[in-house]
């Protein structure tokens, strides 16, 4: 099994968090980090675990680097039964009605194709004072615990 950390970003924050999360995950197995825009949705495999870090832009839209992935996902409609993923969304609750909507949209598309979300839905709110990397690394430790117990 490879733990694949995928990120969707515009300003680079999700990429930075993906790198930090990968450092934690390296204690638990083989880890590969990739931008969602460089990931083929048809390649998602039940043999791997996917950790997705995704921000939100504008009116709750996907960040630019997640958009082509989701476009292809909608177009290809790959069978994702048995594909396990965990997701961490970044947003700003200052924009109440769009807060973290980008990652939620991506998760809904994956779910509709049969993928299974594992563990807590991770979130970071840029309007607060928490450090996104600290929240995300703590969250991913929880994901590993959940997976180990499964």
């Amino acid at each position: 099994m490879t733990i694949r950390v995928l990120y969707g970003t515009e300003s680079g924050n999700s990429e930075m968090i993906a790198e930090d999360v990968a450092i934690v995950l390296e204690q638990h197995g083989t880890v590969a980090v990739a931008d969602l825009q460089d990931t083929d949705p048809g390649s998602l495999s039940p043999a791997d675990l996917y950790i997705i870090i995704c921000s939100t832009y504008g009116e709750g839209e996907l960040p630019a680097s997640a958009q082509p992935f989701v476009d292809r996902l909608v177009e290809l409609r790959p069978q994702l039964d048995g594909v396990h993923y965990a997701i961490f969304g970044l947003g700003d609750s200052g924009y109440a009605d769009s807060y973290s909507k980008g990652s939620e949209y991506l998760a809904a598309r994956l779910d509709s194709l049969g993928a299974v979300r594992v563990g807590e839905y991770g979130r970071h709110d840029a309007a607060g004072f928490d450090d996104a990397s600290e929240i995300a690394t703590e969250w991913v430790r929880g994901i590993i615990t959940v997976r180990a117990a499964a």
Binding site: G12, D92, G94
Partner: peptide, 14 residues
Amino acid sequence: DHQGTKNVTKQFDR
């Protein structure tokens, strides 16, 4: 008042 956006400096600090 957009301090969340200014957090991009955490990338740059590195």
